[in-house]
Amino acid sequence: MELFTPDSGLVIWMFISFAILFIILAVFAWPAIMKGIAERANFIDKGVEYAQEAKSQLDGAREEARGIIDEARRQQADILRDADKMKTRIVEEARVAAQTEASKVMDQAKESISQAQKEAEKNLRNEVSAFALEIAQKVVRNQLKDEKSQKELVETLMGDMK
């Protein structure tokens, strides 16, 4: 069977051809191709890593921004609440002050009124007493027009003194 007997000429040509092909490719092609593929793979890996890092950084930044916004919002709420509190306090204070002022004024007014009343009372009393005295004087004078009555009075008084 000629199919199963290797032909020496073909063996030699094959050996030479394959050896040449192998040497040329091993020296000039395969290392360069392997290097090219490996370098590109590294480059892609690095790119992916970089992108992941960038993404995580972006996520971080977003988180941070959200934190800042939240903080600002909280501060705003605090400030508003404080302002509100202050407002009510001021109003309250003002109200209290006004009240005290008003009550003071009222007290003063009351006092002055009562003083005036007292004064008026005093005056009235004085006047009444003066008037009464005058009346009494007049009555007394009237009653003591005669001697007899004068003596009677002295005697009464003397009797009272006893």
Partner: peptide, 20 residues
């Protein structure tokens, strides 16, 4: 066959150096 081997050599070298 030898001729086909030569042709194959050329094809492979062509492809490899093209890629390079």
């Amino acid at each position: 066959n030898v001729c086909a081997i030569f042709l194959t050599m050329v094809v492979i070298m062509g492809l490899c150096f093209w890629l390079k």
